[in-house]
Write a protein that binds this DNA or RNA. Structure first.
Lengths: 332, 332
DNA sequence: AATACAAATGTAACCGGTTACATTCAAATC
DNA sequence: GATTTGAATGTAACCGGTTACATTTGTATT
């Protein structure tokens, strides 16, 4: 493997000149530059980026903490992250944490050990919390599911408003008993969406029935099971609002299995607008989130933080859209 | 940020002793060790991994080239990769290439620039092909969709046998005109599966009808469109074999849209057994691939290559399984 | 021609670890 | 007490770039 000294020798110049030729060609005379470049290609020289990064104390790597990579919504967010990072010359270290806090802390420590410059966390947990850093300008951005008092920039949806909009859609269709399949208990995202759901009920003068709220974990299986519980409860709902499309797909399967029709007997709505939402039968009514934009925004906020450009907005709220398809209909 | 010299000073020893205390504690006297460890925690010392990697010329990073991260099958493969890599102390740099060869080459060059130790490529393209390396023991493993004459270890499925098995299942149900929605033309994976399909037809004495072969690109949309073409062709098939579950889900939607029932009028089968396969309506008959095992195997082969342990099998073929669900039935 | 000044290039310290080799020190052996 | 031996520790080179500072070269000015 050739290094900069070999190239310098070949070109008959000093290592500094080689370095300068590659980093700021304009301050090297054309003749020398040509000689150096010839030597570079002769030696098939590729700078050792480990050395560069070590010296310059920047890796241009970003760590991304993803709760589950197999969730199609996150897959889209990651797509956006990847695209924006590449455009700005950063690489992405993707970490499938499965929500394990020790794993998250482990990956986050890539920053303190200088293997990466910053972290994008897609879940409401601060992996630096225990660290000395704690509240100084963290090299972190929190997106999608956001902490209540984040010590860092955030990108999120107005989940409360989105949930309210979707619930209102169901109420407009005449539904009064609306079940909800929630995300994990501790998630602020779930809390906000439940709040939005309550807002809509209250505005319509419908009393909240706690029995209609079932926990899930965003997977189709949990949607399937939760729907089973809702069908079994007395005074069963005529509509079910699921906090993710994946759960909605599971719920629809369960409803059909009970011999009921969607939306004939029960309306089902999702959240996220993943690709499969429009291929489900019936196609899902859902809230479309701009998944790729989440990723792109998170990257720009993080790079702004890293490069000390903090004039930009620190907390971004992205727009949502109610997409009405065939899985919701008038109350029978 | 504290470094090893600060710790050495604090403990009143040399930097070498600090390094030794952390890397091979047994050759340091207990008293010194205690002093050093105290200094380490006092200074909140974390070794700069960039420096370590630079010096040791190993990054313990693996680059993974994924055609599309939003494909749920790949998501599972990645899960397996991540898990195995972590177990063996490696990090994963995930790259969503979208099949662009320049992007693939770019990411692969992280190896030549020493940002990563090796590459796992999930597509049939050798990103080092142009490089000087070419055929020396490449720090690469090719998995899932595999090159015909790979210069590196591989992990794959016997796609031909799998396609034959699935086609035989359809023939056993009485189908004689079986459509196929293929993957991209150039893919060896597609070629092998078509070969298996032909094997089964030939064994059953059914003539091949080229018009029943439609190209797709593994997405639900392409399955939807291809199914439309198959429905329109005269002598339309009574069964459709799709080379991915995602395409099968698209195809089912199209068939239903034409007012036909699955499997009453037309059977549809997929390939991969993604999570949604069992949540589709009707649930998909498909070939289950051990996706996570692909990832794990690829990682072990790569690390074997990197660490010079080459006694292990160089080409792994993983088992498949025919999963019969509700989307296939007897010929009407 | 002498001086001033800018441009081009060279020299060497530096980043923060690792490790070969040198040195010190204490216990063991004669 | 002198010598041997091995364990513990220290010294400093090294990895491969970058860059502050020094030096050389070339051009413009008087």
């Amino acid at each position: 493997m050739s290094n900069i000294r070999k190239v310098a020798e070949l070109a008959g110049v000093s290592v500094a000149t080689v370095s300068r030729t590659l980093k700021s060609p304009d301050i090297v005379s054309p003749r020398t530059r040509a000689r150096v470049l010839a030597a570079v290609s002769e030696a098939d020289y590729k700078p050792n980026l480990m050395a560069v990064q070590f010296r310059s104390r920047r890796t241009r790597n970003l760590v991304v903490l993803v709760p589950t990579i197999s969730n199609t919504f996150f897959a889209r967010v990651i797509g956006g992250i990847q695209q924006a990072a590449q455009q700005q010359g950063y690489s992405v270290l993707l970490c499938n944490t499965l929500g394990r806090e020790d794993a998250e802390r482990g990956y986050a420590s890539m920053v303190t050990t200088r293997q990466a410059d910053g972290v994008i966390q897609l879940r409401a947990y601060n992996p630096f919390a225990a660290d000395a850093y704690a509240d100084t300008a963290l090299p972190m951005v929190n997106a999608c599911e956001v902490l209540d008092s984040p010590p860092c920039p955030t990108v999120k949806l107005d989940n409360r408003a989105a949930a309210r909009t979707l619930t209102e859609h169901l109420i407009d269709l005449g539904h009064r008993r609306i079940g909800m399949i929630k995300g994990p208990r501790r998630s602020p995202l779930t809390r906000d969406r439940v709040a939005g759901y309550c807002d809509a009920l209250e505005a319509a003068g419908i009393a909240l029935d706690e029995r209609l709220l079932c926990p899930g974990d965003f997977t189709p299986h949990s949607g399937f099971n939760a729907a089973g519980m809702l069908l079994a409860c007395d005074g069963r709902p005529s509509a079910i609002f699921c906090e993710s499309d994946e759960m909605a797909i599971g719920a629809i399967k369960r409803v059909k299995q009970a011999g009921l029709s969607v939306p004939g007997d029960i309306s089902v709505a999702g959240f996220d607008d993943i690709t499969f939402a429009s291929f489900s039968d019936p196609p899902l009514t859902t809230i479309a989130q701009p998944a790729e934009a989440f990723g792109r925004q998170a990257v720009s906020l993080l790079i702004d933080t890293l490069e000390g450009r903090c004039e930009s907005p620190r907390h971004v709220i992205l727009p949502f859209e109610l997409v009405v398809r065939g899985s919701t209909g008038s109350k029978p």
